[in-house]
Design a protein around this nucleic acid. Structure first.
Lengths: 164, 164
DNA sequence: CCGAATTACGAAGCATGCTTCGTATTTTGA
DNA sequence: TCAAAATACGAAGCATGCTTCGTAATTCGG
């Protein structure tokens, strides 16, 4: 049996350093990635989220906002805001669906598609650089572990019913 | 020499799926942690950031806002906002430093210190649960790799001079 | 000792992210 | 068929996160 740790300095137990807490480290990683992405892609005036949206739209060709939100695992209202900003810059079109007037069908404009192509190399480098301090083998392992965590924690929309 | 990949479907090359991009996975991990933290600690009306701040204050006893921001690797103005909200709830005191009237010295109130103790168990479980889909050994490895990435990417304050 | 650099803040503005509440539209089931 | 449920949005509000610009106070070099 392992020996219990000795407590120093009275009743206050040893605090758990931030730098060992998974949540803190994840926040820092996110912060680091965003900074690297801005370094690489800032000239194109595109944020990581916007790049995700443009990518999703390139795959979908056309999709309503709720579908896009699910694609990128983002809140519906947040997605709407981002799409509005992209539409204001004429990178995305948002037109009411004639067949279902509740929905707004979004699609890339030619300018949006062109921007996506132009950015891709830099964006890819930024993503790679985020894990640049790990070896190639470790990077693959790290990505695999993140995927496993994501798979084990399904995104919670209000759509995802708790009772069914 | 390895054979070049064959392109299907005309000129469009295969898109890089979101679920393989480090930045996307990191954003999802952050999202997952925040949700787990809220599940565990929501009853205490404390967010992960606020918990980090309270923890940092417990270690420092007393500190000005800029020091705290550096402690938790957060922007100075964001830190100020969070501290204001904590102060509004009487968990933190913010008093102008008599020796240096530019600075505001912050410290935990008794209520803040008590809350920190009360939350600690739940917060620790939330942090652990975030990596819950990995084995014990993998969790340690994952944390170590995150620490290495963080160490390799020093936080960028405006204070951190680019030229010196 | 006094002007200049530094430091600690605050305000304003933009972009995420989330929740809750309300509305318009479509679908569905009795 | 027609009221009820489901769906897609929008608006409002709060909490991060960041940048830039401005202000007040302190420190430091000549």
């Amino acid at each position: 049996m392992r020996q219990a740790k000795i407590r120093r300095s009275g009743g206050r137990h040893r605090p758990w350093p931030l730098s060992e807490r998974p949540g803190y480290l994840i926040r820092r990683l996110h912060q680091i990635h965003v900074a690297l992405f801005q370094d690489a892609c800032g000239a194109f005036e595109v944020t990581p989220l916007q790049y995700s949206l443009l990518s999703a739209l390139a795959v979908r060709e056309t999709a309503d906002q709720t579908t896009l939100a699910a694609d990128i695992a983002l809140d519906r209202t947040t997605t709407t805001g981002a799409l509005k900003r992209l539409a204001a810059r004429h990178l995305v079109e948002r037109a009411v669906n004639k067949d279902d007037r509740r929905a707004r069908l979004c699609r890339l404009t030619p300018a949006g598609a062109a921007l996506l192509v132009k950015i891709e190399g830099a964006a890819r480098r930024a993503h790679r650089a985020t894990l640049g301090d790990l070896s190639e083998r470790e990077q693959a392992l790290f990505i695999e572990m993140m995927q496993r965590i994501v798979a084990g924690n399904p995104s919670r929309d209000s759509a995802t019913a708790l009772f069914d």
